[in-house]
């Protein structure tokens, strides 16, 4: 039996973090959410767990690109170049709807890209759909393929 997935949320804006968490809960997702408000502390956490097998610490990453200390792209790159963590799904959630940046994220291996709409209904719908997505997602088992 797999350990439940931990949602690692890297979001510097406390308000956004709160809204995202609230809407994920509303969608019925009960997984643990681990919030980080800057890139450095998130990277420190990833470095701590990267030596352990992925199935012991299954994670899903919610990533904002505009972080105060670094670009979310750097974190995405780190995750996708890591032996264990590369299997973790990454959902980029940001205000940028620049096509070039979106393409860059997909190229680096991001699984879903969501633009935070100002229209709250849309935002809530997007996050709830994300919640549904999280609840059905199965973290691939690196040992059993």
């Amino acid at each position: 039996m797999n350990k439940p997935v931990t949602i690692v949320m890297i979001e510097d804006d406390q308000g956004h973090a709160r809204l995202i968490e609230r809407n994920i809960r509303r969608a019925g997702v009960t997984n643990e959410v681990m919030p980080f408000s800057d890139g450095a502390s998130a990277l420190a956490y990833f470095k701590k767990i990267e030596s352990e097998p992925a199935e012991l610490n299954p994670i899903l990453v919610l990533l904002d690109l505009n972080l105060p200390d670094m670009s979310g792209i750097d974190i995405l790159e780190f995750l996708k170049n890591d032996g264990h963590l590369r299997v973790a799904p990454v959902i980029v959630l940001t205000t940028t709807d620049d096509q070039l940046e979106i393409q860059r994220c997909y190229d680096l291996g991001c699984n879903v890209y969501i633009t935070k709409p100002v229209d709250y209904e849309q935002f809530a719908v997007a996050i709830r759909q994300l919640g549904l997505f999280i609840s059905v997602i199965k973290i691939p088992d690196p040992l059993n393929g």
Partner: peptide
């Protein structure tokens, strides 16, 4: 335009809340 958008998401979100 990006940095203005971030607080706007909060204002809108919490207004709905």
């Amino acid at each position: 335009s990006h940095d203005l958008r971030s607080p706007l998401v909060n204002i809108m979100g919490f207004t709905s809340e």
